[in-house]
């Protein structure tokens, strides 16, 4: 079980939206984690690496320095995390984006590609979770 957190999630979403808008206003870039990470992996550092570093640093400071308790549980074990990572990496590369690039930035621009991509990955994730939890009874 995880607790339903409507206000914290709405506020968290608004912060993500703010970051997305600021990266466009200042750098003229889409804040898609897939695109930014792929750039860093293929040697384009600069603002991309700084953006990723900031995204890692904030949770580190919030939990270690401010001492906030953040719930975290990974229902999947290590072998399945590896499988999942490979599938996600291949999928987002062919699909041209993920939950941030398509799901937030693309949908906020009303991009047809992003709307379709979002429908595809939301449905396939839903079917996968249903299959794992209710058909085969967990991994």
């Amino acid at each position: 079980m995880t607790e339903f957190t409507p206000w914290a999630s709405l506020a968290g979403g608004a912060l993500i939206g703010l970051a997305v808008v600021l990266l466009m206003a200042l750098h003229g870039r889409i804040a898609g984690m897939t695109g930014v990470l792929t750039g860093v992996l293929t040697g384009e550092r600069g603002w991309r690496l700084a953006f990723l570093a900031g995204a890692v640093l904030a949770p580190l400071l919030i939990t270690r320095v401010l001492g906030a308790e953040v719930p975290f549980a990974s229902p999947a074990g290590w072998p399945w995390i590896l499988v999942s990572g490979l599938l996600v990496g291949i999928g987002v590369t062919f699909g041209g984006g993920c939950t941030s690039g398509h799901g937030i930035c693309g949908n906020a621009r009303l991009s047809k590609r992003s709307i379709l991509a979002t429908i595809c990955f939301m449905l396939s994730a839903g079917v996968t979770v249903y299959g794992i939890r209710h058909l085969i009874g967990g991994l």
């Binding site: 990572g85 999928g91 699909g95 379709l116 991509a117 991994l139």
Partner: peptide, 28 residues
């Protein structure tokens, strides 16, 4: 676009990690 996104969803559904969640997750 369609095949890649479906594949991404399957991977996402297996472990619950997506790029935008896992990168900040490193800080934990």
């Amino acid at each position: 676009l369609i095949g890649g996104s479906i594949l991404f969803g399957i991977g996402w559904g297996i472990a619950g990690f997506c790029p935008g969640g896992a990168i900040p997750g490193l800080g934990l």
